[in-house]
């Protein structure tokens, strides 16, 4: 899949913000990931060309950052924080609840491609623990009941092909 004109323009605009175009590396990779869902060799070539560097260098940088995905994920990437503050308030039982509700283990994707379940290190939302992130959104002060509501909401949204972030607004 080639990169869109809009993505190309967006990247060129972002490059202009920096005294050194190489600084646009992370934004460029974020655009590539948004376009393709995850980072491919094609993405590394695209970024390398825009930033006057090599695809190998871009891949090396990308490998450092956990939010830059090197393989596809489901439509909803569920990331459960398991760091201390969340674990002290029951991250483990919530993770088990998600495993059971989704029928998958951590690191797996549901057969319908809707959900990928992962754990994540501290999301910086410790005072509203336990917390998970679904795509760009935070869900805080979780309980098993709340998780059921969230999953139902996401399933409804997927059924109606709504925008990923309009189901409940920002929390």
């Amino acid at each position: 899949m080639p990169f869109s004109e809009a993505a190309q323009r967006e990247l060129q605009e972002i490059i202009q913000r920096y005294p050194d175009k190489r600084s646009a590396m992370l934004p460029a990779l974020a655009i590539a990931q948004r376009e393709q869902g995850y980072l491919t060799p094609e993405a590394y070539r695209w970024v390398a060309e825009a930033l006057d560097t090599s695809p190998t260098w871009v891949a090396s940088v990308a490998s450092f950052y956990t939010m830059l995905r090197k393989e596809p994920a489901g439509r909803y990437l569920i990331q459960v924080c398991t760091n201390l503050s969340c674990s002290l308030l029951g991250a483990k039982p919530l993770l088990d609840h998600l495993r059971q509700r989704l029928g998958i283990d951590v690191g797996e994707t549901t057969p319908d491609g809707l959900f990928t379940l992962t754990t994540v290190e501290c999301l910086g939302s410790c005072a509203t623990a336990p917390v998970m992130q679904v795509n760009d959104r935070y869900y805080e002060q979780l309980t098993p009941e709340r998780i059921d509501e969230i999953l139902a909401g996401l399933r409804r949204e997927a059924g109606t092909c709504g925008d990923d972030r309009t189901a409940e607004g920002h929390s």
């Binding site: 600084s23 992370l26 934004p27 990779l29 974020a30 950052y65 956990t66 939010m67 830059l68």
Partner: peptide, 8 residues
């Protein structure tokens, strides 16, 4: 300029 990290 707002510069976003990528998980590190």
């Amino acid at each position: 300029v707002v510069h976003r990290g990528a998980g590190a």
